[in-house]
Design a binder for these strands. Structure first.
Length: 275
DNA sequence: ATCGTAGCCTGGTAGC
DNA sequence: TGCTACCAGGCTACGA
């Protein structure tokens, strides 16, 4: 489940293999990952051919392949998306969806089992043109006080706000649960009357947890997330709450509780994260 | 305008 | 063994 740290690991890997390279051939093997591109799979392949990548950027969980001409290929890994750089004679993984031949002789492959991810070409999108995606906590312009105040002004609960990519981007279910555990805030706490100062604590905790994950090359609970060489960060980060239902809270020993939350789960300590 | 949620997808697994 | 039902969950579209 790639969240910000995992996507950043992928961005760094792509940066070293793709920047300065041109797509010499593009093949779309499954239409779904390019579903949001109006000209369809053939149009996508035709439009991407002969583009030269000038920079690899990231905001939240989105990746930007910025081209020389100002356009951009915007990619999202969804649940199970992977980018791999391989030699062309290596066998294709079963779920390979799009293949880009590079003028370096290598091949960039987009692999996605569940196909929640996607690729699209955005004319003029080279400078992170995505107004509906907020800044993430790693962005230089990210203003933690302003975001805490904005969340405080919403009528929702803290975990919903953390997952709202229009407010702060890059945080998914795993790091939301971990940040709330670290800051000792219950996920269903209303953002108001929760103080802006406590919300700031949660945002700082989220950045701290993601920084730790980035330091160990990203984390994942399953083998779907891998870096561009196919290596997994499997279990490399010690999680305190997520996925630990009925296990003792590392802080107080109370069993971690799991509760249903909008088609997924929240994990928290009922003793040290009180509503 | 704002908030909450169904649906999109596949493969692994629990349960019968 | 083989079948079904369920679960993982980021994002978009849509209803309230």
């Amino acid at each position: 489940m790639p969240e910000l740290p995992e996507v950043e690991v992928v961005r760094r890997g792509l940066e070293s293999h793709v920047v300065g390279r041109t797509f010499t051939t593009v093949a779309v093997l499954h239409p779904r990952p390019v579903r949001s591109f109006e000209a369809g799979p053939e149009g996508f392949a035709a439009e991407l051919t002969d583009r030269r990548v000038s920079a690899m950027r990231r905001r939240g969980k989105f990746l930007w392949f910025a081209f020389d001409d100002g356009d951009a290929l915007i990619a999202h890994l969804g649940m199970s998306g992977q980018f791999r750089v391989d030699d062309p004679d290596q066998p294709l993984h079963k779920h390979t969806r799009v293949v880009f031949d590079l003028d370096s002789g290598k091949q960039l492959r987009f692999i996605d089992q569940r196909m929640f991810g996607g690729l699209t070409l955005v004319p003029g999108g080279g400078e992170l043109a995505a107004p509906h995606i907020a800044l993430d906590p790693f962005a230089a312009e990210f203003d933690v006080d302003a975001v805490a105040t904005a969340i405080h002004g919403k009528r929702t609960t803290i975990k919903r706000a953390l997952l709202d990519q229009r407010v702060v981007s890059g945080i998914g279910n795993i790091y939301a649960d971990e940040a709330l555990w670290l800051a000792q805030v219950h996920p269903e706490t209303p953002t108001n009357p929760l103080s802006a100062a406590r919300i700031k604590d949660v945002l700082i905790a989220a950045k701290d947890v993601m920084t730790a994950a980035l330091a160990v090359g990203g984390t994942s609970f399953d083998s779907l997330y891998v870096n561009i060489n196919g290596e997994s960060g499997y279990f490399s980060l010690n999680l305190n709450a997520y996925g630990r239902e009925n296990e003792p809270c590392p802080r107080c020993g109370e069993p971690i509780r799991r509760e249903a939350f909008t088609n997924r789960s929240s994990h928290f300590c009922p003793k040290c994260q009180r509503k």
